[in-house]
Design a binder for these strands. Sequence first.
DNA 1: AAGATCTGCAACCGCATACCA
DNA 2: ATGGTATGCGGTTGCAGATCT
Length: 320
Amino acid sequence: MGRTPCCDKNGLKKGPWTQEEDLKLTNYIQVHGPGNWRTLPRNAGLQRCGKSCRLRWTNYLRPDIKRGRFSFEEEETIIQLHSVLGNKWSVIAGRLPGRTDNEIKNYWNTHIRKRLLRNGIDPVTHAPRLDFLELSSILGLTLCSQSVVNASNLLGAQTFLNPQLLSLANTILSLKQENPESVLQYLNQNQLCTTSAVPCTSTMINQTGLMQEGFSSDMTNLSYPNSQENLTSSTLTNAFIGQPNTTVPVLSETPNMQYSLDGNQNYSFDSVRSTPTSSPTPLHSSSTYMNRCSTDDDIESFSSLFKFEIPEGLDIHDFM
DNA sequence: AAGATCTGCAACCGCATACCA
DNA sequence: ATGGTATGCGGTTGCAGATCT
């Protein structure tokens, strides 16, 4: 009953393929076609498992494989499809002629995923992340409220806060409780307070009633009722983003911030797209987002992240 | 210049499902 | 119907080259 095992792993070669092996496999498949991977290695004179041969052929030797950098259009397509399909690399590959699932998977993990993270997009949900705003909120409350914020509130957020940033928040909180002036010293020493945007003063930190009166509900603009100065969220986020070796933390998702699909089948991140433009920090300034983009590619991709079109003829329902 | 660290990618591994005897 | 194999897929690893210190 059943079939014989696909291959006996004993004595079979593993690791990188040699030119000679590639040649043997290619020649054999050109003559006999790619079927029956179990018997293929023996027939082709290869000391390899059939699985290994299939992988080598489909991911590397196949003549229709496109090599080289992914084009902008390909990248867009991958992002679109991934937002709908998730990690269905083979299905995504089916929409990108000449690209293999392995190649797309690698490209996603090494390029696109990092880029999305860097730009504040959750690569799993494709929803904008409010990490910085949430942290700003926590710190804002910590620094500016007269009521003592219980450290457990911060610790409770530990499951989704970047440990580095949480540690920073805790440090500032404890300093504040000991001596508000030491907070200023700490912020200035660590360049966490951008004096050009808003000077940190003890008056500001100790200002009364800010929590009740001062903060706008969306936390994008933390205004001081008795001051001309506005402590913006970008001021705080700048402080963190500007720190070398500060990684982008993963916080909670925002369910109300998702793609919207307009009549022209344009996906857009409404919430996030509006944030940079309405923010005091311009999109193309060197702060906030753009200072994380090290290459032209990053910049180009960043701008495209917030609006892209689904190619004509691409029916999402095909994949469902 | 050399060692450490980072990055990109080919290849492997294990699982799920289709297929077959 | 059952159980074993073949194939396909996604996650992960390991290595080589690039970059940093």
